[in-house]
């Protein structure tokens, strides 16, 4: 690979290579606080390849490959190279990570205890985690929460926060440091996307695990509502939200069944960010 960068995100490390300078330069700028892989050896390799060699020069388009690949990982326009690198890292984690039970969830921490939020894309979990990360919580990740089968602790995977559509302006209004934002990517498969680098303290403390304390199933765009979610429903939804539950076998079963038996869970509906923050405050304070 002509251009490359290596970085560590939580317990995982990546080597990212591309035929073009631009996506790697953008990654280097946005990930400059993240350490290099320990011993210089990365867990995963992500390659952003030209779809055809000559297309590097005419109408450039990127194809994501790596240690683990999906046949239908769609080629993307070069302008979205940063997004392709992010998707490539997520793909490697989703398909290749075995050290933890991987939950598709956002996660924030306060006083050593973690709040996990899981839901489909568009549920608001990413935006909510980003907002909490600017309000005294440590941002641990907006895509994957990593549960340790041995201890039950949750480990951080605080990659860049992927802000979508209306969340972009909302976070631009709350984060004064413009250098923490990536370029605005218009017209992706998920609409407009802009990446936000987590606060420096979230990156500096990314190797510290936390004890799970509360699980939320957020749903944006609905009137305010709170509903307890019983352990059976939690288990079912979390197996669906895990990309490696089956691969971990009995260790995954033990980890997830202990999690749902001990962690209270609520489904929360909210019409806007401020309502969501108020709901989270109430539910978190009620734990004590």
């Amino acid at each position: 690979m002509k251009h490359r960068i290596a970085l560590t995100i939580g317990p995982a490390s990546f080597r990212i290579g591309a035929a073009w300078r631009a996506p790697v330069a953008r990654l280097a700028a946005l990930y400059h606080d993240y350490p290099a892989p320990p011993g210089g050896i990365a867990d995963f390799t992500v390659r952003l390849d030209p779809v055809r060699p000559w297309r590097r020069y005419i109408r450039p388009s990127i194809h994501i490959t790596g240690d683990h690949g999906l046949a239908d990982a769609a080629p993307m326009a070069l302008a979205h190279g940063l997004l392709a690198a992010e998707m490539g890292m997520n793909l490697q984690m989703a398909l290749g990570w075995r050290r933890h039970l991987l939950l598709h969830a956002a996660c924030v921490e306060k006083d050593g205890r973690a709040l996990l939020m899981t839901g489909e894309s568009g549920s608001g979990k990413s935006t909510l985690a980003a907002m909490l990360g600017e309000r005294g919580w440590r941002f641990m990740g907006d895509e994957f929460a990593l549960l340790d089968p041995a201890t039950g602790a949750v480990h951080a995977f605080p990659r860049l926060i992927s802000l979508k559509n209306s969340a972009i302006a909302a976070m631009e209004a709350q984060v004064a440091d413009a250098a923490r934002f990536g370029p605005l990517l218009r017209g992706t498969a998920k609409g407009d996307i802009r990446h936000l680098r987590p606060r420096a303290d979230a990156i500096a403390r990314m190797d510290r695990p936390a004890t799970p304390a509360l699980l939320l199933f957020p749903r944006y765009g609905q009137p305010v509502d709170i509903r307890p979610v019983d352990p059976g429903e939690c288990f079912m939804r979390l197996t669906q939200a895990s990309t490696n539950y089956t691969a971990l076998g009995e260790a995954g079963f033990d980890c997830l069944s202990r999690f749902v038996q001990t962690i209270p869970a609520q489904a929360i509906d909210f019409p806007d960010g401020n309502s969501a923050l108020a709901l989270v405050d109430d539910l978190w304070n009620a734990l004590r």
């Binding site: 019983d230 352990p231 059976g232 288990f235 009995e250 079963f253 033990d254 069944s257």
Partner: peptide, 11 residues
């Protein structure tokens, strides 16, 4: 067989 009863169902 590992049997783990939850509140409402059994895993």
């Amino acid at each position: 067989l590992v049997i783990r009863p939850l509140a409402d169902i059994t895993l």
